[in-house]
Nucleic acid binder design. Structure first.
Lengths: 341, 341
DNA sequence: GTTAGCACTCATTCAAGTAGAGTGCTAACA
DNA sequence: TGTTAGCACTCTACTTGAATGAGTGCTAAC
């Protein structure tokens, strides 16, 4: 059997209607509210075909039809194909005051969640190791040293370190010089033993102290390799009855608190793909608890070659059209923000 | 009518039972499972009295009784009175690696949520204005300056500032000196115009730049006055059927994303009280959406005279005993951590 | 003061019945 | 040959009513 034009139109009508109502769609509804001018009987025949072909499902005998994952997939694909980039005005006063990635992303997920009424998340890049832009040690009181580490993308990390001996101003100064000289521009992977050796040699202090500092630097950077996850609007999920069957909802929301799992969710599967928008429907998410959800992800560029992801999680019947265009819009915005900085 | 000993015992039995089951408690249950050796009929008489006195409620004719807010209140008060500080071993490897308040609190709320199975939150102190411990400017590239601000309690804030002109190393050095000299130890309120004047005079740079820096400092400190809120275990709320009526749950969880509201929740009402543990039952929380919840809060000391709060939000029938002892335990722990640092 | 007994109340549960939406199939029609 | 009208059928959702049982209040007896 072939999916001819009429079948396609009927399928689209079914999906559109289902997206609106969340209820199974009957033949009469389509016959009445579409511009096909066909009787319900004809629609029924076609629907039977569409069901045979796997695009729609009948939850039980004599109920209307709902789209299957395959049906959604077709719909989404055709939508992505002739997307007409209709820009919405989004209150994107993001740039102001948002001087650091974490602030920006916090705001982005919030804006996104408010705009779409779905759950949203954003991750910073993983895998790609960050490089050191700048290190600054300052002696605080007694044996405490404040270390500030600026990584590329202006990610600032700081840590207060208690060192075994008191450090004079000169020592701190020297350490700053040495550390910056040798480490600037390096990523964790590219710090060689030779570099470490040089640092220790030229630091002019107790090797234990230097070792400690280096250890902390390593730790901070390792930490940074774990992508951070920002979420918002998790409770939006409760708004969709089909996801709000306490068993699922609770599990789903739970996973929003366990952020590590989420980061895998949207990072893993996108490795190496192009930076377009991706849509995962139902089982395609590969996560049991999300089998009734869809995930839409987008990639943005933090810095030359360093990517982060945005994700939206909602019911399968999410408003793909709006989500995609919102994401596209935001993605461009983010790109330009990061390129500027 | 008087609340004699027997009535009290019956009330306690009712509450205990209700805490366990979440179901209304009947007279027969009490007669059977308490050591009072009274028939159900007698219990019924007493229960009628207790109801008249407002300690228990009958949800509908011929249902068992459930404790009223007033009943809970009595129970909690008597419990707090003869509390025997039974320490539980809590996996409090908090101290390690947690060198900054935010990390500690993040961990605390998580541990607390895992231990109690309720939703938890922690706020840093508000109102009490923080003081500047240390300022460090560093010139990054071009016209960007990294400002690191250490406040009391070792709260480290940083911001990258784009200044209108390039700053030489000497200028930065001088600015550091001047800013630290004049601002160290001051809170936002105690920075006088005279101080500002002195700084501008001695900075030796374009007044615009100094103004900008001061402005940023002010902003950071203002930001810091807004207490930050850390939450965890929000979804635990879904575990309690009486809170999981979609209407409420959704609103309740929603307020967990709106952290500002939460901070008021546990900060406002405690101003000026002693630092004991406080319990708010039902309407006492003063929040409509929490009228079926109880909140238990505890105060910990970040630094001499600076307090933060911990809060646990659960159903009215929460295990007050456990919650209180867990909080007490944790509170001491926190106090000692912060005193050490 | 305590208890046994009894009538009464009311939520909950289950089964049966009804309404309605929707289908599949067949026969008629253009 | 494709389309449509009509009809019997299916299945869910909703309503109704009866049975159940937990629990009470009241009264009278101990």
């Amino acid at each position: 059997m072939e999916l001819d034009d009429r079948k396609l139109k009927i399928l689209q009508a079914i999906i559109k209607n289902y997206l609106d109502t969340g209820e199974p769609v009957g033949s009469r509804t389509i016959s009445k509210y579409s511009d096909l001018n066909l009787s319900s009987a004809t629609i029924r025949n076609e629907m039977a075909d569409l069901e045979d072909m796997g695009y729609i499902i009948q939850p039980y005998t004599s109920a209307g039809r709902i789209p299957s994952d395959k049906g959604y997939r077709l719909y989404v694909d055709s939508m992505l194909a002739n997307k007409k980039r209709e820009y919405e005005v989004m209150e994107a006063n993001l740039i102001e005051k948002a001087d650091r990635i974490d602030r920006i992303l916090e705001k982005v997920v919030k804006v996104l969640a408010d705009n779409t009424n779905y759950a949203t998340l954003a991750t910073t890049s993983s895998n790609k190791s960050r490089t050191i832009k700048f290190i600054q040690l300052s002696s605080m009181e007694k044996q405490q040293v404040l270390m500030v580490l600026v990584l590329d993308g202006n990610r600032v990390k700081n840590k207060i370190i208690t060192v075994p001996c008191e450090c004079s101003a000169e020592i701190i100064l020297r350490l700053n010089l040495v550390l910056n000289t040798y480490l600037q521009g390096l990523s964790l992977d590219s710090i060689s033993l030779a570099v470490l050796h040089n640092i220790k040699e030229q630091a002019g202090v107790d090797e234990a102290v230097v070792g400690m500092l280096l250890h902390e630097i390593e730790e901070i950077m390792r930490e940074e390799e774990e992508p951070e996850v920002y979420t918002s609007g998790a409770t939006n999920i409760l708004k969709y009855p089909e996801l709000n069957t306490s068993a699922h909802a609770s599990q789903l929301l739970g996973s929003f608190e366990e952020k590590t799992m989420l980061s895998h969710l949207i990072s893993d599967k996108l490795e190496g793909e192009n930076r377009d928008i991706q849509v995962y429907i139902g089982d395609e998410t590969q996560v049991e608890s999300m089998k009734d959800c869809s995930i839409v992800t987008a990639t943005y560029e933090i810095e030359e070659g360093v990517y982060g992801k945005l994700g939206i999680i909602g019911p399968k019947r999410m408003d793909y059209d709006k989500v995609v265009s919102t994401l596209e819009n935001l993605m461009d915005e983010l790109d330009s923000i990061f390129k500027k900085s």
